[in-house]
């Protein structure tokens, strides 16, 4: 087994265990930390795919900024253990089969896509370059409109949050 493959399996295991811990743990802060674990493992997986920029941004934005805010809010509220209600039990019974179904559907979809890609590659398809320069070129030419639309969307979300926060005061 090659070294990248070993790293892949370790990180995949960490990601899955982290995701399960995220749902199972009853302390909100443990859940938040498990989510950070998942994100870090995912970042390593991106690295293995050669997407250095995405890996770094994944850590900076998600683990380093968004999750810090989550942890901050949990600490401010000093949130205690989760309570289990009747509804959460119903959610468990309905959620497990539904989640399983979703997982199977995604696996099926991804397997199809993977087969399609190997066929395309064997037919002399070009490999995707993941360098930061290439990425930024694509982002500011081909995907300019979605990129700008997303930034405006985020701006609107910030303004919306501000308006909501002001109104409550």
């Amino acid at each position: 087994m090659s070294l990248p493959l070993i790293v892949f399996f370790i990180c995949a295991l960490i990601a899955v265990v982290g995701a399960i811990l995220l749902i199972v743990s009853r302390e909100p802060i443990h859940s938040a930390l498990s989510l950070i674990l998942v994100m870090m493992a995912l970042a390593v997986l991106y690295l293995l795919l050669g997407a250095e920029f995405i890996a770094a941004v994944q850590i900076i934005v998600y683990a380093g900024a968004i999750m810090v805010l989550f942890v901050f809010v949990i600490m401010v509220l000093n949130a205690g253990e989760e309570e289990r209600t009747n509804w959460s039990r119903i959610a468990k019974f309905a959620g497990l089969p539904l989640g399983f179904f979703l997982l199977m559907w995604m696996a099926h979809w991804m397997a199809d896509a993977a087969i399609g890609r190997t066929v395309a590659n064997s037919g002399g398809g070009t490999t995707v370059a993941f360098s930061t320069v290439e990425l930024s070129k694509l982002l500011f030419t081909k995907y300019l409109f979605p990129f700008e639309a997303t930034s405006i969307l985020i701006l609107i979300a910030i303004l919306g949050a501000l308006v909501l926060a002001k109104r409550e005061n």
Binding site: L33, A56, V57, I59
Partner: peptide, 23 residues
């Protein structure tokens, strides 16, 4: 190749040490 970004990534999660110690 992206040393600077990785450095920022590492320092950006450095806050957890302090925040978790406090909590």
């Amino acid at each position: 190749n992206i040393g600077l970004l990785f450095l920022f990534a590492i320092t950006s999660i450095g806050v957890y040490g302090v925040a978790l110690a406090g909590w």
